[in-house]
């Protein structure tokens, strides 16, 4: 009984993670400008990646594979916010102005 539950859970994680991945890809086109696009991109980095890796983790044949999956998830969780932050800061330092609430529609 337990293996089936774990299997179902892992498939659910993979499916939902894939869904979030595609939505963030769509977000890259639906968002009006760079900073809001970063939000859509950051969404996958923190959520979909961990979901897909978690789904794989439940299918891991031995602990060596599990350790690697956890290490990848940890690296992504540590580096992706840093990369987003560096991107946004560099864009601002370069004079790119974020689009603010009232100015929608023009972008």
């Amino acid at each position: 009984m337990l293996p089936q539950i774990l299997d179902g859970l892992s498939w659910a994680l993979l499916l939902v993670g894939s869904g979030f991945t595609i939505i963030s890809g769509i977000g890259l086109f639906r968002m009006p400008e760079f900073f809001t696009r970063t939000h859509a991109a950051g969404m996958t980095d923190s959520m979909a990646a961990i979901m897909i890796l978690g789904g794989l983790l439940l299918q891991a044949p031995d602990w060596m594979v599990a350790v690697r999956l956890i290490a990848i998830a940890a690296f992504l969780a540590l580096t992706s916010p840093t990369a987003s932050h560096a991107l946004a800061q560099a864009a601002l330092a370069d004079g790119l102005k974020p689009l603010l609430g009232g100015q929608q529609g023009k972008g």
Binding site: L14, L15, G17, S18, T21, I22, G25, I52
Partner: peptide, 11 residues
């Protein structure tokens, strides 16, 4: 999952 990731990569 692979297909979904490939679509996102194309986007």
């Amino acid at each position: 999952a692979m297909l979904a990731i490939l679509i996102t990569m194309a986007l």
